[in-house]
Every structure is written in C-alpha cells, then in structure tokens.
Amino acid sequence: MIRYLVRRAALAVVMLFGLICMTFVIANVAPSDPAALAAGPDAGRAQIEAARREYGLDRPLHEQFLRYVGDLARGDFGRSVATGRPVGQDLARYFFATLELCLVAMTLGILLGIPLGVLSAVYRDRWVDHGTRILAVSGIALPPFWFGLLLQLGIASSLGWLPTSGRLSVFTEPAAPVTGLLLVDSLLRGNGALFGEAMSYLILPAIVLSLPCLASILRVNRSEMVEALRADHITAARAHGVARWRIVTVHALKNAMLPTLAIIGLRWGWMMSSTVLVETVFDWPGIGLYAVSSAISGDFKPVMGVTLIVGLNFMIANLVVDLLYGALDPRIREA
C-alpha cells in the first residue's frame, strides 16, 4: 500500500509540473503582447519596453519559465492587469465562495443521487425507475445557465421566495472570516440570521450546480446496483432469509459504492469547472466569475491562476479516488 501511495503521489507531482508548463505555454502563444497589455492602452513604445523589462518579458523563454515556477512556488500568481491586485490574494478571497457552493452542491448530489440510484435499481422498470431516468437524462442535457435563469425567473422573481443573485445582501455585514465559508462562519459565531440569509442566497445556484452531478451519480449507482443485485452471493443471502432491505443496503450497495465513489471524485473535479457558468448566472463571487470577467478583458494572469487551481483540485480529486480504490480493492494496488 505504501509503495502504491508513493507511486501515485509521484505521478501527481509530475502531472502538476505538466500543468504548470501548460499554463505557461498557453500564456505565451497568445497573439497579444503581454507587455503592451501590462503597460495599458495609451502607453507609448518606451513605456511598453519599460513594462517588458519590469516583468522580465525581454528574457529568454526558459528564464521566464524558471521565474514563473519560482513565483508559483512562493504562491505568487502575478498581478492582474485590470486591477493591479496580486492574483494570489484575489484567488484566496474568491476560492472559498466557490468551495462553499461546490460543497453544498456535492452534498445535494450525493444525498439525492445514491438513494435514488438504489431505488431505481430495486424497482427496475417501474415508475420510480422511469422517473429517475428522466431526471438523469435531463440533468446532463439542461444548459446550466438556462436552468439557472429559469429558476431565477420562477422562484426568485415571480414568487419572490429567494434572492436572485449574489452571496449576501449588500446591506449585510458578513461575519469576520474564520474558514471563509459563510455557512460555517455564521454558525461558529452563533449568528442564525446570517446563516439563514447565506443559505437563501446559496440554495438556487447549488441546485443548478448539483443537477449534472446528481444525474451522473444516479446513473452510475443504478447500473452498479443492478449488476450487484444479480450476483450469486445476493441470491445466497436471499435464500438464507436475510431481510430484503438489509441485502440491498448492506450487501449490494457495498459492491456498488466503489464505482460510485469514482464518479463522485470525477464530478467534484468537473464541478469546479461548470461552476463558471453557475457563478456567472447568479453573480456568485467565486473563482469562476473571476476567470470569466478576466478572460473577457484579456487579463491573463487571473485566468491562468484559476486554471491552475481548478486543475490542481481535479488532480487531488483523482488522486484521492485512486488511493481509495487502492485501499478498498487490493487487486488494484497489486497491478
């Protein structure tokens, strides 16, 4: 197990280096001149050249790359051209909004996806199964940005039940950050009203974000459960007179959980990516909105910073899934 862990971790480090190379290459194939961008729209030639020297853009590429890696190692993601602020600081601020949204959405996806998957496998080809199949298919096909707009229109605007967008009302003072997650911080401070408000802003974007994830978990869990319920040891357990729901939840679900865990890990990685759309619709102040607004104005450093964070998160998710697989299924770590 230790050897497996070391090998997987080493591979992850290599991949991280590759990811850094990739962002560097993307930033350097850009047709626009980063120095001109940094110097501002009205800069003359002299100012552009000054900016080029200041940012080290006149150095050979391999030197620029080493400097880029060194900066990243110190947590320096460069500066945003548009705001002049260090990207690292912005990322640290926006990341927790995204994390909170993704955590709640993932919780929704798991809490609904697994039971529905189990139910539709047990009641295969009955109405529960048909109903969840519609949910699974539409969950993947619904454009998240359109679904978000529809929810805003119906539940937030027409019915007025929930706020349309943002993370808190502009008049509300957020709790001093402890974890950066508003729900947790408000509870830590014992501020129930703030918790309620944060939840009311969070719930619609979380529903939209969780839908594709819920659909995937449901599909995988269902097909694995169908497979697991056919196994010989299940028939044997049934013949022994083990209670039906005990067979389903203990014996079959245990075997279906490994692939379900894998899809949860994969979906966690993707979620940080599709959050871009959800955050844009709901003006959620996370890294996705930050990446989009920077990308529109051609401001590279923030976009590359977000790409690195999302890629890193995806890698960690994959690593955790692999290690879980290795821990739970000995056949894998032998291979």
Binding site: M15, G18, L19, M22, T23, I26, A27, V29, A30, P31, G269, W270, M272, S273, S274, V276, L277, A291, V292, S294, A295, G298, D299, F300, V303, M304, V306, T307, V310, G311, F314, M315, N318
Partner: peptide
C-alpha cells in the same frame, strides 16, 4: 495532461489567450 484540467476551464484559458 490535457485531461487533467476540466474542459470548460481549459477552453476559457485558451479563449483568453486566443
């Protein structure tokens, strides 16, 4: 390597560059 960044974010990064 290309699969290590979820598609939409990688696409946004590329569009930002192009």
């Amino acid at each position: 390597l290309f699969l290590s960044v979820p598609g939409l974010v990688l696409a946004i990064a590329l569009v930002a560059a192009l």
